[in-house]
Design a protein around this nucleic acid. Structure first.
Lengths: 324, 324
DNA sequence: CTGTTAGCGCGTTCAA
DNA sequence: TTGAACGCGCTAACAG
């Protein structure tokens, strides 16, 4: 491996000078700079991150702790966080928490021991209490899609309740009255909020839900609940609180010979790119996880960055019809 | 941050001794060891990875370059590689190549500049030639699911042709004669091999394929091709060269009021956990990407590890019926 | 079994 | 605008 020293010798300057041009210091004569740059290219020099980290006591890494590596959601998250950290010349380290508080905590500590400059946390098992404690200990982190009381300035949140209300109203405004909701596990705060939003919108319209079913946030979860639902009753609209569930529901619906949207309209929460590509393309409430992740990462790395808010938006595609 | 020195002072020994207990050196008196361990715990010491890397000229990281972060495939890959690297006390760095040769190469170089101890490569755009060149340059890496002539000992491969033959024969042995195949983009070596395996098995049985269609390796790809297919003809069996395509095909099939497996049998390539969870559960050829990734990582890290071979296996579930 | 001593490659004063 | 010199925290001989 070629070192600073080698470059310095080759260019006939001191190591300090090479260090300056590598780090973009302004106080270098143009001529010297190009001499050094030539030597760098010729020798194929690349700074040793470990030495750099040691000398500057900055690792130039940021850590990401997520719930899991599976699902369309995670790819988008990781993609965004990584491109953002790269823009800042930092390397991303990723670890999964697997939804166990203990694992999440150990992932955080591991990353902290690795001297990450900061962490982006997308976790749900770890109690608010612990998070506040860590913040008190001087851990630098941003929490994604979760509202931790007392740590508001470190949280990047989304109003799931409002999003669900919006989605439900699309049905209501379309003249639907027999509307069902398929939501995720009650153990998750965001599931509950989505369910609540649905119920509120229905109540406001003076409507009784055709059904409110809980299932896993995946394809079979959607399939099972939708199958069960259709055995009992036939709503004209179903709101699915997650993309995977929606695909499962589609399977159950078409399997019974029903058509979307002619017989049943569908809206889903859209956290990936799936809703757009399935046929018929699903009308959805856009959950801007990429944008949120980008903001979270910037917030972590920039001292100052303009506040952003993430309002729910409906993306109209082809899975809803009016019954007026 | 507490350092080795702090621990040494607190325990009343030299830094070298602390280093020894931290690194599990045997030459430490039990009594001294426990004294040091106590001090480590008391002070909450954790070694500085940068200092360590610098002193030992070993980064203790391994790099993973993948095509993309999306899709069920990637999660399994990353999960496996990470747990394996962790077992070796190393940190995983991940970068995506996005299927562009240029990006893949720059990802590799980046990771190399980061001084990774080795790389696991799951990429397809970069030419064999370049890979051989890198190997010649002293880059240490293992290539996953790709056969690079001249680099056989660095490749962990799977026989896609044999796997497809196996899958096709399940239909043939079940008495099917009108069998179609939906495969992925012709630009990928593995797509071509899967297609070829299908054609060979059919030819061996003296059967003409009902259709052989190419589409994208995703849900809409499967949906579109299956829809097109069913407009023309109605095979009794469809072989889908990927899980996503199979789900798309299911959508198209059920949408036309056909049932699986009563009207149409389905087998898919299974690289994730989706095939098992969809309804009906899909009979599949298991593509053991996790096992292969584990082996690749071990091969990279252990000097010696027993050779493994990855034979295709059929997992019988509920999407095939005999027409005897 | 334990301590001493050199670096590892770089950033960063401080002088010049 | 440049160079000399120190130290970041740790590993790895080498003595003892």
């Amino acid at each position: 491996m070629v070192t600073l020293e080698d470059v310095a010798a080759s260019a006939g300057v001191s190591r300090a000078t090479v260090s300056r041009v590598v780090n973009g210091d302004i106080n270098v004569k143009a001529q010297t700079r190009s001499k050094v740059e030539a030597a760098i290219i010729e020798l194929g020099y690349s700074p040793n991150p470990a030495a750099r980290a040691l000398a500057s006591s900055q690792s130039n890494t940021v850590g990401l702790v997520t719930t899991s590596y599976r699902g369309g959601f995670f790819g988008a998250l990781m993609d965004t966080v990584q491109s953002e950290t790269e823009r800042h010349g930092k390397q991303l380290l990723v670890t999964q928490g697997r939804s166990f508080a203990e694992k999440e905590l150990s992932a955080i500590k591991q990353l902290y021991n690795l001297r990450c400059d900061g962490l982006v946390l997308h976790i749900r098992a770890l109690p608010d209490e612990t998070l506040r404690h860590l913040a008190g200990q001087g851990y630098k982190f941003i929490v994604l899609d979760r509202d931790v009381p007392g740590l508001e300035e470190r949280c990047v949140v989304f109003d799931h309740r409002a999003a669900s209300q919006l989605a439900t109203r699309v049905f209501i405004d379309g003249g639907h009255t027999a509307i069902a909701c398929l939501h995720g596990p009650g153990s998750r705060a965001s599931s509950l909020l989505r369910r609540q939003g649905f119920l509120e919108a229905m109540a406001q319209a003076g409507l009784r839900p055709a059904a409110v079913l809980e299932g896993e946030y995946d394809i079979p979860g959607g399939y099972q609940q939708a199958s069960a639902l259709l055995k009992e009753t036939q709503p004209t609209a179903i709101y699915c609180c997650n993309e995977e569930m929606a695909i499962g529901a589609m399977l159950a619906i078409t399997e019974r010979g029903l058509r979307i949207p002619q017989d049943i309209s569908l809206i889903c929460y859209d956290s990936g790119e799936r809703a757009a590509f399935v046929r018929p393309a699903l009308t959805s409430v856009h959950f801007p996880i990429s944008e949120m992740a980008r903001f979270a990462t910037r917030k972590l790395l920039d001292e100052h960055c303009v506040a952003e808010s993430f309002a729910p938006v409906i993306i109209h595609r082809a899975s809803v019809r009016s019954v007026h």
